[in-house]
Design a protein around this nucleic acid. Structure first.
Length: 372
DNA sequence: TCATCTAGCACATTTGAATGGT
DNA sequence: AACCATTCAAATGTGCTAGATG
C-alpha cells in the first residue's frame, strides 16, 4: 500500500484547506463554491480526505530546473504525469475524479538564454477544460486502493479541439488541480454532489511548443521510457548503434541467468567457468510477508509466489523479460523462484544492474537496497 | 531578424489480436 | 472448450529537426 507523503504546508502562500489532515489547499476563489454547499454535501466535506502527489522525487527534480510541458495541436501527454493517492473517502460512496490546469500566476514568460523571465501579462484565460478520470464514477474504496493516474491526460494549444484535451496557452505557467466530486444521489438528483479540490504547486510547469531548457530535455529523456532512443546523446538510435552490433553479439554470448536456488547451487560452478564475474541477488519470499510495501503489491506478489500469479502479473513479467532480452540475449526465464542469480560479462554488469533496479524499483522501492 | 510554432521523422513502448500448446 | 503463453503488427508516445509563420 502506498503511504501518503506528509509535507509541510504552513508556509504556503495560499489559503489552507480547512479540512483536517488535508494535503491540499484552496486558492481564495474557491470560497464561493464552498459557500453554496448544503446539508447533502456535508458528507464529503466532513471526511478527513488526504491527497498526496506521487513521484515527488522526480517532480522535485523537474521543479528545481523549471518544469516545461510540451503542448501540441493533437495533444501531448504530461511527463511526469500526475499520479495521486487519496485516503479518507467513504469506501462505499461513488466519486468522480477530475483534473484540470489552472494559471499559476498572471504572467507570460519567455526563455532568455538560460532562464525563464516574465514577459508581460498573461493572455486571457481560456475556459477550463476538465479531464475526467476514465474510471469515474467509482466507489471510494476503488480510488483509495491504488494511486490514481492521470497519464492519459493530454495538453494542447488548439482551442478548437473537442477531444477532451486540456487547452493551455504557450509560455504560460500552470499548476494541476484535482477535483473529487461526490456522485449525486439518484434519489435527490437536484442536489449536486459535494466536491473537494486540491492544487499541486510543486507540479507547476510552463507550457511550451518546443522545449527551451536543455536540462529539462535531458531529464525527460533520462526518465521517460518512450524517449529511450535519445539517451546517450542519441547513440542508442539505430544509425549509431549498427556499428556496435557485432561487438554486442560477442559479449551477449556470455550473459546467463540462473533461476532457482536449487539450480543456482547445482549450476553455479559450471557457469562461472565461462564468465567474467557473477552477481547474486536474493529476494526472500518470507521477507515479503513482513513488508507491506511488497506483499500488497500484486506485481511483486506474483513475482515471489508463482502459484498466485494472475494474468496481469504474468504479462508484466513478460514485459520485463522482453526489455531484458533486448539488451541481454540469454535471459531464459526470470524469477520462477525467489532467488535471482545473475551471471554476466563484466562489461555488461553496470547496465544489467541499472536495468533491474529501474524496472523493479518502479514497483518495489526497497529492491535497490536488497540487490547485492 | 528573431521567437515561436508545425509537421514529419526515427525510435521506443503499449496494446490487442492471432496462434499454438496444454 | 477453456485457459494460458507467446508472437507479431498496429497504434501510440517520445524528442529531434528543418522549415514555416508572424
Amino acid at each position: 500500500m502506498y503511504l501518503p507523503e506528509e509535507r509541510p504546508v504552513l508556509d504556503l502562500p495560499y489559503q489552507m484547506n480547512h479540512l483536517a489532515n488535508n494535503y491540499g489547499y484552496y486558492p481564495q476563489d474557491c470560497r464561493t463554491q464552498y459557500s453554496r454547499m448544503n446539508s447533502a454535501e456535508a458528507e464529503l466535506t466532513s471526511l478527513p480526505v488526504h491527497v498526496s502527489l506521487q513521484d515527488r522525487e522526480l517532480w522535485d527534480k523537474f521543479s528545481s530546473i523549471g518544469t516545461e510541458m510540451l503542448i501540441t495541436k493533437s495533444g501531448r501527454r504530461m511527463f511526469p504525469s500526475c499520479k495521486v493517492t487519496v485516503t479518507g473517502l467513504n469506501p462505499k460512496v461513488k466519486y468522480v475524479v477530475i483534473m484540470d490546469m489552472v494559471p499559476f500566476d498572471n504572467h507570460k514568460y519567455k526563455w532568455n538564454k538560460d532562464c525563464w523571465e516574465v514577459n508581460g501579462s498573461s493572455d486571457p484565460h481560456l475556459p477550463n477544460r476538465f479531464f475526467i478520470h476514465p474510471d469515474s464514477p467509482a466507489p471510494g474504496q476503488k480510488w483509495m486502493q491504488y494511486p490514481i493516474s492521470f497519464h492519459k491526460l493530454k495538453l494542447t494549444n488548439n482551442t478548437l479541439n473537442s477531444n477532451g484535451l486540456v487547452v493551455l496557452h504557450s509560455m504560460h505557467k500552470y499548476q494541476p488541480r484535482l477535483h473529487i466530486v461526490q456522485s449525486p444521489d439518484p434519489c435527490t438528483p437536484h442536489n449536486p454532489g459535494a466536491y473537494l479540490r486540491f492544487t499541486f504547486p510543486e507540479a507547476a510547469f510552463i507550457a511550451v511548443t518546443a522545449y527551451q531548457n536543455q536540462e529539462i530535455t535531458k531529464l525527460k529523456i533520462d526518465n521517460n521510457p518512450f524517449a529511450k532512443g535519445f539517451r546517450d546523446n542519441g547513440l542508442n538510435r539505430k544509425r549509431f548503434r549498427d556499428k556496435g552490433t557485432q561487438e554486442m553479439q560477442d559479449t551477449d554470448r556470455q550473459v546467463k541467468l540462473d533461476l532457482t536456488a536449487n539450480e543456482c547451487a547445482a549450476g553455479m560452478s559450471q557457469m562461472v567457468e565461462d564468465v567474467d564475474v557473477s552477481v547474486s541477488s536474493s529476494v526472500d519470499c518470507r521477507d515479503t510477508q513482513n513488508s507491506s510495501s511488497v506483499s500488497l503489491n500484486p506485481f511483486i506478489s506474483a513475482f515471489t509466489n508463482p502459484s498466485s500469479a494472475g494474468g496481469a502479473a504474468a504479462h508484466q513479467t513478460h514485459t520485463l523479460l522482453s526489455l531484458s532480452n533486448r539488451h541481454f540475449s540469454r535471459f531464459h526465464q526470470l524469477l520462477a523462484n525467489t532467488t535471482i542469480v545473475l551471471i554476466c560479462a563484466q562489461s555488461l554488469l553496470p547496465r544489467l544492474i541499472d536495468l533491474l533496479k529501474n524496472k523493479i524499483k518502479s514497483v518495489d522501492q526497497t529492491f535497490p537496497q536488497r540487490l547485492l
